[in-house]
Design a protein around this nucleic acid. Structure first.
Length: 624
DNA sequence: CCCTTTAAGCTTTTT
DNA sequence: GCTTAAAGGG
């Protein structure tokens, strides 16, 4: 690849970076980028990767390591970088999750661990039954009578509290020993935290591996830095603190909504003290319209954030952006008001997938009335949870792609992906040459033809089951299990398969044998997504409806006011053009129907400040 | 069988 | 806090 001198390098694809962002891209020290919603954090990382690779500041063959929390975030970043700087990124930009990074290290250097800390190489991950059995075996009988979920929590934190090497002779230490080596009929089993602990210990005790790691990765990207847990941070420090590798951490303390799950509150401060990064604050909000940004800025005070400048994109007029607070008598009227508004948006040409309905928690308690009211207007809406859990699974993705490609051959990108996967799953090595490859292609094309024929007939339930089972057999279930270790465990793959079969069947059923449409519907291309605030993090929608700005939805506000304010901020900042909050005086389908907003009154006050939200009281018309 | 009481979970991800 | 589901009581 041609090396571009740094002073001649320009951001790829005609992207214009704000001045501070370009500083962060070109910085050669550790950097802490604090950037609000819509500032273009992913783009900044993608451009920085392009800069480092294209100018050879990340010297060939050294690599960039990007660490995210979720697989889809890691995937997105990888794709963005490949789009920005092409094939070079395939080999020298490594994007993965924290857990994948730890597990790869552990698996790769398993024999660097002392024998007493070394698990079997085919260890299970996070197997609840084995972990419970291990605690039981060492004599733990749940004396406090913890509920199942609390018990699981206790197991996890007890195991995470052990220090390596295992020195003392306590409960958790004994369980560690059992889990490491396996016991009775159980294989070695590790929790995700144990994997990180072992990986960290390995780096701590093996200078050559540590050096090799530091030499391999000269730049480290940490995405969503505000969500980093203490253990993850300790691991990163163990790997890279004091080395020449430069860390670029990107995050937003105003969107810190994972503290309850272990995110370290003082992470920015700790990073500042220990790595002395160059601080960068981005001031652009490319996402939201000016009036929405004004509301976001009003939140800054309650989020204990300095009222820094935020600039909006020039694509907006200064008066753009709609904020509404709907005060409804009951959930039927609430639904009618929302649906009326949504129908206007759709009439304006906004696609359903660009509209989002958010709840603080438990969408099933709030969504049904709205879903049926939307259905009356022929608009689909669905709670995303189980769909997303399925869609993110690589095997489901593969199944959908095979179906799509069978329907329509003109999908070169998907074909390539299927072929690559099959080469992997069927174990076709490069040594076998072109013949094996051609054979694979022939079989795939034959299968695609067969599938296409099957998809022209109207399937019934049993029929669909057979088609799917056939397809799984074709791809080779044991091969899939070999490629994806997660599917090897217990009945995971079988359950996944059943869930997919059932959910997809409802789509096939309603799409009346239009397979293409069924697939699109399954992927959420034609429906309004309904989800929790937490699930919406990182996403953006033209119009957002936040349902239930009520005390009962924010039941934990007293105990975690900061985090709930952040949650409100996250919900608010998903919207590009309009945001609507609803407050329902009476939810007649609830056991305690009367809703208040005493506890979260500060959020109401904010919306009711002059010039902020349009307050719409909707009441039942008296029946004449 | 119906009514009352109690317990559990609620916001997450990761191979 | 509040909902839901399961268990308990008559």
């Amino acid at each position: 690849m041609k090396i571009i001198p740094p002073e001649k390098w320009l951001p790829c694809d005609g992207i214009v970076l704000e001045e501070k962002a370009e500083c962060a891209v070109r910085s050669n020290s550790h950097v802490l980028v604090i950037a609000g919603p819509g500032a273009g954090k992913t783009e900044l990382l993608a451009q920085k990767a392009a800069y480092l690779l294209q100018t050879n500041r990340c010297m060939d063959p050294q690599k960039i390591l990007a660490i995210s929390f979720k697989t889809d975030a890691a995937q997105n970043l990888k794709e963005r970088v490949e789009k920005r700087c092409g094939t070079e990124a395939k080999y020298r930009f490594v994007s993965m999750t924290f857990d994948a990074f730890a597990k790869n290290l552990l698996d790769h250097f398993l024999f660097a661990l002392p024998a007493e800390l070394r698990p079997q190489s085919d260890y299970l991950v996070n197997d609840d039954i084995v972990i419970d059995a291990a605690f039981t075996k060492v004599g733990y009988r749940n004396p406090a009578g913890l509920s199942p979920s609390r018990l699981k929590n206790f197991y996890d934190s007890a195991l995470a509290a052990v220090t390596l090497p295992i020195a003392t002779d306590g409960l958790a230490e004994n369980v560690w020993s059992l889990l490491l080596k396996g016991f009775d009929d159980c294989k070695s089993t590790l929790t995700f935290k144990m994997i990180t602990m072992l990986a960290k210990y390995m780096i701590e005790t093996n200078l050559p591996i540590k050096r090799a790691l530091q030499l391999t990765y000269s730049y480290i990207f940490l995405d969503e830095f505000q969500d980093t847990t203490g253990m993850q941070y300790a691991f990163v420090k163990q790997c890279f603190l004091g080395s020449d590798s430069k860390i670029t951490a990107v995050g937003d303390n105003k969107q810190r909504i994972m503290v309850w799950a272990g995110a370290l509150k003082g992470i920015f401060l700790a990073f500042n003290n220990e790595f002395k990064p160059e601080p960068v604050r981005l001031v652009m909000n490319h996402r939201s319209a000016p009036r929405l940004v004004a509301l976001q800025k009003e939140m800054y005070v309650s989020l204990k954030e300095k009222a820094t400048e935020v600039n909006t994109s020039s694509k907006w007029n200064p008066t753009d952006g709609d904020i509404a607070l709907v005060i409804a008598d009951n959930e039927t009227i609430e639904a009618q008001a929302i649906v009326e508004d949504i129908m206007c948006k759709i009439a304006e040409g906004i696609e359903p997938y660009d509209i989002c309905i958010l709840c603080k928690q438990l969408p099933p308690n709030y969504a049904p009335v709205i879903i049926s009211e939307l259905a009356n207007h022929e608009v689909r809406a669905r709670i995303e949870n189980e769909y997303q859990d399925l869609i993110k699974e690589p095997v489901v993705d593969l199944l959908l792609k095979v179906m799509l490609c069978s329907l329509n051959r003109k999908r070169p990108h998907d074909w390539e992906l299927i072929e690559d996967s099959l080469i992997d799953i069927w174990g076709i090595g490069t040594t076998q040459g072109d013949e094996a490859y051609d054979q694979m292609q022939d079989r795939l094309f034959a299968k695609a033809d067969e599938l296409k024929k099957q998809m022209t007939e109207t399937p019934d339930r049993a029929n669909w089951h057979n088609i799917l089972a056939d397809l799984m057999r074709f791809m080779d279930i044991s091969g899939i299990k070999a490629k994806f270790p997660a599917y090897r465990q217990g009945v995971y793959l079988e359950e996944l398969f059943t869930k997919f079969e059932n959910l997809f069947w409802t789509e096939l059923d309603t799409a009346s044998d239009n397979w293409q449409l069924a697939i699109e519907n399954f992927c959420g291309l034609h429906s309004i997504p309904i989800m929790t605030i937490h699930k919406s993090k990182g996403l953006e929608y033209s119009a957002v409806y936040f349902i239930g700005l009520e005390d009962s939805a924010f039941w934990n506000f007293r105990h975690q006011p900061e985090e709930d304010r952040c949650a409100f901020f996250v919900a608010l900042s998903r919207a590009k053009k309009s945001i609507t909050f609803t407050y329902c005086k009476r939810r007649t389908n609830f056991q305690a129907p009367f809703q208040r907003h005493n506890e979260i009154n500060e959020l109401f006050d904010l919306l009711q400040r002059p010039g902020m939200a349009e307050v719409k009281e909707v009441t039942e018309l008296p029946v004449v």
